[in-house]
Design a protein around this nucleic acid. Structure first.
Lengths: 195, 195
DNA sequence: CTTGACTTCCTATCGTCGATAGGTATACTC
DNA sequence: GAGTATACCTATCGACGATAGGAAGTCAAG
């Protein structure tokens, strides 16, 4: 597992390229990254990038994995309240804040903004880990059916997309998050304990 | 206003190009349209398209307007029930069905899938007409605050996006539409008639 | 320390794409 | 019938992602 100097140097370089790519994405949108500009940003010529990524999509895949890893870390660092409903709220709020703080990242991770790009199975596994936790958290809050989980996830996604495309940086949609969660969880409760 | 033979021929040609573009979009995705292929599909060479559209974005703009016009027509043809809640449901269902029946169109009209594309004010006005009707319909159903309208629109959008990207052609998310509308309208009701 | 292999970066070039320049034949107008 | 606008063409541009092939630097084995 110990990398060896070569592999270590290589990994560091890959990481620095991905970092530079995020900066360019923030400036020009996720689809606005040009390999020429990216190469110059890390002191290279464009073809040299192919030493580290087989294609532009491979770069996007690395960014996708990187973004999901950051999200996972932030969620890992969370100390969730005991109350399941409060935990769901905190989790979802953390997710929403993360998504909204970088539109370009959001486009890559949560919208299908790059024509033809599909994350590799390894990268997607990271995304599913985050989604899996939503499932268990919701379970603990009394949400057991997949349909209900789907609805809640879709609602949060809807808030995110609307916020991002109509009022980026604002809170016109995101501020409704907690209320919507309460609304839905109350309904689930009513349905399960005799209506 | 009467077109004259030249303008008439021109309009017909523009319409046929837009139609061909929708076909290509259905095949290769909205971003996968190449002007070369589009030109050949209507029996032209690529530069000749510039006789009808100043740029590719102008083509997208025409498609955006065309799509919204089709949506508006379908909504116009609707005979809405007197019951406001039923009317909202029927309207939203019509919208959702329309959105889901052509993923490529959906990407152009309701997601921001083309890097750098923003519809022209004239084209966007068509979209706002559809959105405006949602507002009045919801008003009649007792939803008066902008925040509530935002939430409902976001929820429907969330269902649409989730359905399209995770289960295109299916109903895993879209089938929850009516229930979600009921849930939210009930809540609005509870809030307004003393809680 | 030297040799040979691997790593890392380069220049040159390709094919595709959107876009422009400039020309020509057809169609309409006076 | 002459002049103009329309509608299409060929040729070419510049930007982009990608490939070919080579040169310098790094590193480990003898």
């Amino acid at each position: 597992m110990t990398a060896g100097r070569v592999a270590e140097r290589r990994e560091a370089k890959v990481a620095s390229i991905v970092d530079a790519a995020w900066k360019l994405a923030a400036e020009h949108g996720i689809a606005g990254i040009s390999l020429y500009a990216l190469a110059r940003a890390v002191g290279m010529r464009q073809p040299s990038l192919y030493e580290y990524f087989d294609s532009k999509h491979a770069l996007y895949d690395a960014m996708f994995a990187d973004g999901n890893r950051k999200l996972f870390e932030r969620i890992e660092a969370l100390s969730l309240p005991r109350d399941p409903r409060a935990a769901v709220k905190k989790y979802m709020r953390t997710f929403l804040d993360f998504a909204l703080e970088d539109p370009a990242r959001c486009e890559l991770l949560f919208e299908r903004h790059i024509p033809g790009f599909t994350p590799s199975p390894e990268s997607y596994a990271l995304a599913e880990e985050v989604l899996g936790r939503v499932g268990t958290l919701l379970n603990e809050a009394g949400v057991t059916s997949q349909g209900d989980i789907d609805c809640i996830v879709a609602m949060v996604g809807g808030l995110m997309a609307a916020q991002l495309s109509n009022d980026p940086g604002g809170t016109r949609w995101s501020r409704h998050l907690n209320r919507l969660i309460d609304l839905y969880l109350d309904d689930v409760n009513t349905r399960s304990t005799g209506r």
